[in-house]
């Protein structure tokens, strides 16, 4: 095997590969025979084509006039950084906003009161929150359903018994479940914030049906949810001034938490992973150098057989 490879490649296998220099390459070029005029012409055509392509791309990027929708601006959230946790005081205020405003129409079926413990509320507080509402339970020994005060293990109550009832109460539009809404919409919490604060008068030519409102951030512009947040729409228990933008910011942060309850742990894990893996990388590199050092310092000598 080795002998036949050697016969095919001769000594070339052992030598460093022959790399032609730039000068050698240019002597191989077929454009050398071209006249000056031809070179100039082809060069101009090439430049024009490239420039036109770049211009088209830039125009497409900047205008995007084809869709009737405003993309939400990016905000600097206090949890935007690579290692930044959620602001739990804000999550707590966001829960108050959800409970007092959004819960009138939107369900949040995948969050239970026990999830609040150690995130926004103490255990006693979460229990008190749960007990505030009556939950349908049963059946008891008589086979009847009964109502009881909520427990930590109960999920947030839904405002409507089913989707049809929700549609009937909202002009046929279904208020989506908010548990995972931040993950379910492009733009995430930026979108929620922009949507809640972005209501304005419909521009001329936009027709809104009964029960519809204009919101440029909502795809299509006509949304069946009325503006929900106004200055002083409610009061915070921690005394933060309840401006519309403060309410929107807090509810967006809260919805970010409900959609990604693992958010903080994930960022902490990232930090640990970077630490551990840079350590392992360093070890791996060192071992590779060590194992190769014997190979790289070895001298190979070719001695033809003496006749």
């Amino acid at each position: 095997m080795a002998a036949s490879v050697g016969r095919i490649c001769r000594a070339g296998l052992l030598k460093s590969p022959h790399v032609p220099t730039i000068n050698q390459f240019s002597s191989l070029s077929t454009t050398r025979e071209w006249t000056k005029g031809r070179k100039a012409l082809l060069g101009t055509i090439g430049m024009l084509a490239g420039g036109a392509g770049a211009l088209l791309l830039a125009l497409d990027r900047s205008v995007r006039a084809s869709d009737l929708e405003l993309h939400p601006p990016k905000h600097v959230w206090s949890h935007s950084g690579m290692f930044s946790s959620l602001d739990h005081a804000s999550v707590r205020r966001g829960y108050e906003v959800y409970k007092q405003v959004c819960a009138a129409c939107h369900s949040m079926r995948f969050i239970a009161y026990r999830n609040l413990v150690g995130v926004t509320h103490t255990e006693e507080e979460a229990k008190a929150e749960a007990e505030e509402q009556m939950v349908l339970d049963g059946p008891n020994e008589q086979g009847e359903m009964f109502k009881r005060p909520g427990k930590l293990s109960d999920y947030f109550p839904s405002p409507y018994p089913n989707e049809e009832a929700a549609r009937a109460a909202n002009n046929g539009a279904y208020p989506p479940d908010l548990s995972y809404i931040v993950s379910a919409r492009h733009g995430g919490e930026d979108y929620i914030f922009a949507l809640l604060t972005g209501y304005c008068d419909a521009p001329a030519g936009v027709v809104l049906r009964e029960g519809q409102y204009f919101n440029p951030y909502f795809p299509g512009g006509a949304i069946s949810m009325a503006q929900a947040l106004y200055n002083e729409a409610m009061e915070y228990t921690d005394g933060t001034p309840a401006t519309a933008s403060q309410l929107a910011k807090d509810i967006s942060t809260f919805l970010k938490w409900t959609a990604e309850p693992e958010h903080d742990d994930r960022k902490k894990m990232l930090m640990k992973a970077i630490g551990i893996f840079s350590f392992l990388m360093a070890i791996t590199y060192y071992i590779k150098r060590m194992k190769f050092s014997t190979l790289k310092t070895r001298k190979i000598e070719f001695r033809p057989k003496e006749k």
Binding site: S78, G81, F83, S84, S85, L86, D87, H88, A89, R92, G118, V119, T120, T122, D264, K267, K268, M271, K272, G275
Partner: peptide
């Protein structure tokens, strides 16, 4: 790492506001 994470997020975690 836990201390570092808490230092970076001083005042934002549940631990700090509870």
């Amino acid at each position: 790492t836990e201390n570092l994470f808490e230092k970076i997020n001083e005042g934002k975690l549940w631990k700090h506001i509870k």
